[in-house]
Design a protein around this nucleic acid. Structure first.
Length: 567
RNA sequence: GACCUGGUAGCUCAGUUGGUAGAGCACCUCCCUUUUAAGGAGGUGGUCCUGGGUUCGAGCCCCAGCCCGGUCACCA
């Protein structure tokens, strides 16, 4: 691998440090006595006191015998002041002149011991008395500078580089770290909410013999010993319900699910859903629970129920409006589609400009009407309720209308955030719904659900009336952190592999020329060119290739140009 | 999967009808003991994404491909 000039300089510095007897990667624990955030927030307490800090040097301003540098630890950034006469004794200034000024670089991880003070211009700083190298950095970091107005210059902003090298992104872009800290605050807040109510956090299989609980294309893998296919879960719903059958009153899981489908700025092949199931509850209860939960999450994350999402200000303050889906369609299209059959619905869709085809049933048509004409109107949190039966094979039939189900989706900023039901617990009804799915599948719907016989068996033992919900954690994090792309809330979003490393293998021309060279060891350049029979362009390219791989070199001698093999 | 942008120094970006590859920061050398996008003087650094083609000559034009991003399709 070819090193850049900047990398070569750093490797030479590394070597020189070793020659000076300094281990650039020491093993010993480095005990710190404070964090940068502590010092900055409680400066009065720290001023004049000695502290030991460790972190990464993010910038350096050398002014002869004194320098300023910026130190960054996990809590923040602050300035340190390094004076030659403070860190060196009188007869040996190596530590300052050579080690600090020449051999250290931006990005190196150092430890310092020094006194907290304020500079003439009033910046909180540490006056360094001792300097320890904790880890030498061999690759240059992007240089991001912030001016007096807080304006960022030359931000490390290339999305590809930021996602592929998230570690660099986290080092130089402080706001990125904030996003991920908030993500954890969100899940901590939810856990706290559930645990306080006595709900049990559980783990269920990721490798499933039957991928159930949702309609999506799964990833498939193979277990060698059992010699059978296994699927990465698309949902964990059916396993959590088995646990409700088993007698737990409330179980929840933060689940990584996997779907082998398209990727865009709201879809990653692996994503996180929090699913919760509570016995003896219905979807009305679940709406109330959701309001309470999200209000708490918003406050725990941002300190307020008001969240700025793009251009919209969204309030998570409970309660949220509840709108039946058919009502929503009536409001936004003017058509009352309640009780319409497939033919009538198709007419309505055509009238409002939605493309339809023959495979679409009643459920799909209603879904299209809502998705195209209604969904984007619901900016403030809104429960859309009572979805048609066909679209919801795991949901209990509505208590007053057998064509509908007891289901809601929570819409926020025009997007689905959560999906919840009064769970279907009638095993015979469930079996029939699965069989309907099978018919859809036979009609060509490759996303219809598989039949899980064991799940039906579990229901046959009796599952209490239960309400369940799934909340998209990635999406919730996007809302709470005002990010419009899922990649911004995943540490390592899925990417295609980087360009493969340049091959060391020779191409045919290079091989041919190298063969000639091997016979002669040394040959006049023009003679070799003639023997190779290559055109000017190809000759040039071939020779450049061989010299680059350090297999051959050209010697300019008194007798002329000669090519020889390098050993 | 389709279409549209883009890919040039470590980072952010310029690059004129096709004519020897540029800037700022970073880096290197020198000066500078409270600076702060530190400053001053000088300097180094390139697979112009890859592979073909057109041309006397390609970062630029043409073809094919790769990768990021965006829009759409798909994804209840």
């Amino acid at each position: 691998m070819q090193l850049t000039p900047l990398e070569i300089v750093r490797r030479e510095s590394l070597q020189k440090l070793r020659e000076l007897g300094i281990n650039p990667y020491p093993a010993e624990e480095f005990k710190t006595t404070a964090t940068i955030n502590d010092i900055l927030t409680k400066f009065d307490e720290f001023e004049g006191k000695e502290v030991i800090l460790a972190g990464r040097m993010m910038s350096r301003r050398i002014m002869g015998k004194a320098s300023f540098a910026e130190l960054k630890d996990s809590s923040g950034r602050m300035q340190i002041y390094i004076n030659r006469d403070e860190i060196c004794n009188e007869d040996d200034a190596t530590l300052y002149n050579t080690v600090f000024k020449k051999l250290l670089d931006m990005g190196d991880i150092i430890g310092i011991k020094g006194e907290v003070f304020k500079t003439k211009v009033g910046e909180e700083s540490v006056n360094v008395k001792e300097l320890t190298i904790l880890s030498k950095s061999l690759k240059p970091l992007p240089v991001v500078k912030t001016d007096a107005d807080g304006k960022v210059h030359d931000a490390f902003s290339d999305a590809e580089q930021r996602y592929r090298r998230r570690y660099v992104d986290l080092i130089v872009n402080d706001h990125v770290k904030e996003t991920f800290i908030k993500r954890t605050k969100i899940t901590n807040s939810m856990r706290e909410f559930f645990n306080n109510r006595g709900y049990l956090e559980v783990e269920t299989p990721i490798l499933q013999p039957i991928p159930g609980g949702a309609a999506a294309r799964p990833f498939i893998t193979h277990h060698n010993t059992l010699d059978m296919p296994l699927y990465l879960r698309i949902a964990n719903e059916l396993y959590l319900k088995r646990l409700i059958v088993g007698g737990f009153d409330a179980v929840y899981e933060f689940a990584k699910d996997f779907r082998n489908e398209g990727m865009d700025r709201t879809h990653n092949p692996e994503f996180t859903v929090m699913e919760l199931y509570v016995a003896y509850k219905d979807y009305n209860w679940m709406m109330k629970m959701t309001e309470d939960l999200l209000e708490k999450v918003a406050i725990d994350t941002n300190g307020t129920t008001e969240v700025q999402i793009g251009e919209n200000k969204v309030s998570f303050k409970a309660p949220y409006p509840r709108v039946p889906i058919l009502e929503a369609i009536k409001i936004h299209t003017g058509y009352d589609v309640a009780g319409m059959n497939e033919v009538e619905l198709r007419e309505v869709c055509k009238k409002v400009g939605i493309e339809v085809d023959e495979t679409m049933g009643v459920g799909k048509l209603i879904d299209e009407l809502f998705g195209e004409k209604c969904e984007h109107h619901y900016i403030q949190p809104t429960f859309i309720t009572d979805y048609p039966k066909e679209m919801s094979p795991l949901t209990k039939e509505h208590r007053t209308n057998p064509a509908l189900t007891e289901r809601f989706e929570l819409m926020v900023n025009g997007k689905e955030l959560a999906n919840a039901y009064s769970e279907l617990n009638d095993p015979i009804d469930q079996k029939e719904r699965f069989e309907d799915q099978l018919k859809l599948s036979e009609k060509g719907d490759d996303e219809a659900m598989f039949i899980d016989q064991d799940f039906i068996r579990a229901l046959e033992y009796g599952m209490p009336p239960t309400s369940g919900i799934g909340i998209g954690i990635d999406r919730l994090t996007m809302f709470m952190t005002n990010n419009s792309s899922i990649q911004e809330v995943l540490f390592f979003p899925q990417m295609k592999p980087e360009k493969k490393a340049p091959t060391v293998e020779l191409n045919d021309d290079e091989k041919a020329v190298f063969e000639i060279l091997k016979k002669t060891e040394k040959i006049e350049l023009s003679e070799l060119k003639t023997q190779s029979g290559l055109s000017n362009k190809k000759w040039d390219k071939t020779m450049k290739g061989l010299t680059k791989h350090k297999l051959a070199k050209v010697n300019n001698t008194d007798e002329g140009l000669f090519v020889e093999i390098t050993s």
